[in-house]
Design a protein around this nucleic acid. Structure first.
Lengths: 196, 196
DNA sequence: GGACTATTTTACCGATAGGTATAAAAGTTA
DNA sequence: TAACTTTTATACCTATCGGTAAAATAGTCC
């Protein structure tokens, strides 16, 4: 096995570097020259292992989800909406304002708007955000049906409200807000949960 | 007066076109070719009247503020925090999801992240968002001192919380949320105001 | 009508964008 | 050692980026 010349770089490490760069500068704000320099490889190696720029971004997005976002969305497993929403928002605040990582959320600032060339990536991010909101919406319905939320509560409205706060936290983080400041935003949101 | 060949385009109309394009595609996502096509003028005319791309964006930002944002922030003149915050958030929702305009907020999505070349514009937007939050913070202190908010209320925390919801609404709008959906986010936020 | 002035059009600039062809290099297998 | 396979580095491709020089054009003033 292991035919041919062995690869000189670790694809996972290189993907981490690409992810951090996309996170910090966005999809269209990151050039292939930026990427190859940060990843420590040349363009042909990048294309051989990761495909084109769009493929690489999708792989970086998957890695972002696995390493940073998924644990936060594990909050949906909490038995009560209060504990879940608090854990979710605190998790987002922690990821968005971590000391050693880019500020903000890759799923928000990776391609919030873009040129025509980046439209497919923008829609991909829109879809992922919508999926997260839909998952939260389904859980809201379960909590309501279990009596954890009032029968009059609208699951879609509650999910959209929580994700609005979460996305707002992402913008505040990208603007330089500290983790402690964001924690206080979460605290104020939770002080009045549920808002019905 | 009026020496020389008369200008064939209306600078205000051209600036409106540029503003809408920056609003829809962001600072770096909008090329000079995009701009000149939408504005209906050639590059030398653009440079003569508006300066370079960065100058043009700043002028578009000023026009955005004058035509769309300033009226919303007039909500700060309301005598009570409840009326002000509700008017502010409803105003943002209305601007961010207006039918005939790009979705979202230029001050958020104009340059939330960018390449090194756009860093000055990103900081300019950060500064403007911070100024808006600071203005809201000052009003919160006044409302608190006037007895409209509890003495324990922290103006900075309240302002950051409101702007988080506002920025979250901007992201939701850019993701396709309708004005009615955003209106319900505001309603839930106001149902528990103040969150102290 | 001619001089003057500002705007238009056209063509162009160097730098960089994403992407690839080619061939040298570094291993494994026989 | 020779054949084979994969990755490497180098050089290059076309298109587009932001920005500008030069000349043609369309008005006003005398």
């Amino acid at each position: 096995m292991a035919l041919g010349r062995p690869r000189e770089f670790d694809p996972d490490e290189a993907l981490d570097s690409a992810m951090e760069l996309f996170w910090r500068q966005g999809y269209e704000g990151t050039s292939l020259a930026d990427l190859t320099e940060a990843m420590g490889i040349a363009k042909p190696s990048l294309y051989a292992v990761f495909g084109n720029k769009e493929d690489l971004f999708r792989k970086a997005l998957d890695r972002y989800a696995a390493q940073h976002a998924d644990a936060t969305y594990g909050a949906l497993n909490e038995p009560t909406s209060r504990r879940a929403v608090e854990r979710l928002l605190l998790g987002l605040a922690g990821v968005d304002a971590a000391e050693d990582m880019p500020k903000g959320c890759l799923m928000v600032q990776g391609a919030l708007v873009c040129s025509a060339a980046g439209e497919r990536i923008r829609q991909e991010l829109c879809l992922r955000r919508a999926e997260n909101e839909a998952a939260l919406c389904r859980r809201m319905a379960e909590w309501r049906d279990a009596g954890d939320l009032p029968p009059s509560a609208d699951p879609a409205d509650l999910a959209r409200y929580v994700m609005s706060v979460g996305n707002g936290i992402a913008v505040q983080a990208a603007s330089g807000a500290s983790k402690e400041e964001l924690r206080r935003v979460v605290e104020m949101t939770m002080r009045t949960w549920p808002p019905v």
